[in-house]
Amino acid sequence: MTGPLLVADDLHLAFGPTRALAGASVEVAPGEVLALLGPSGSGKSTLLHCLAGILTPDRGEVRYRGTRLDDRSDEARSRLRRNDFGFVFQFGSLVPELTALANVALPLQLTGARRRAAEEQARSWLERLGVADVAGKRPGEMSGGQGQRVAVARALIGGPRVVFADEPTGALDSLNGELVMEEFTAAARDQGSSVVLVTHETRVAAYADRSVVLRDGRLTAAPAWA
């Protein structure tokens, strides 16, 4: 496939009187790891949510593989999340009642896989990310680093085209954060998934192929080494 995988074109979005996005544009190439950097309130998470079809911009458009994403129905966007996207958030993207193994197996089951097969694959992902020992634990019973590794495994297991990661290491110390990032980006690159990474930490952004900086709802400059 040629051309960008995901395009945001002049997005505007306001929450009441608060302007979150004011003309943000960005492109994500297939297989690219892109970091969205910026201070708190710069609109980087909002941009990620718009790119993932979770939020709908007031103005501007989001295109995924050449077609509009922002005007699709909730049903269609949910299908995209199921089949094409993966997510790693700072907190709570795991289902609190399910074990690590069941959480990781969930995306496969949602797309119709049998439980046994899904769990087998989930176990190998947990092993790959070095958290096979927490397979039977629930999110509340794991450390932050283990939880984020499980979340990474769950985001990648379905072989998504894009993984959206919002401050994936926000709750971790710097060493743990780097280890998670290392494993996350390596695994994503291995299977050719693009990654949209929101962070305010430059060392985390350094794991990306490219960084863009948001301030006041728009990008500060065009990419320097595109």
Binding site: E182, T202, A206, D209, V213, A221, P223, A224
Partner: peptide, 23 residues
């Protein structure tokens, strides 16, 4: 502002390089 942006880009580039070297 552009001085700072350029500096940031340069630094980030270096950081990416170093991060890649660490791998």
């Amino acid at each position: 502002e552009q001085i700072l942006d350029a500096q940031r880009d340069a630094h980030l580039g270096v950081m990416r390089g170093l991060t890649a070297r660490k791998r």
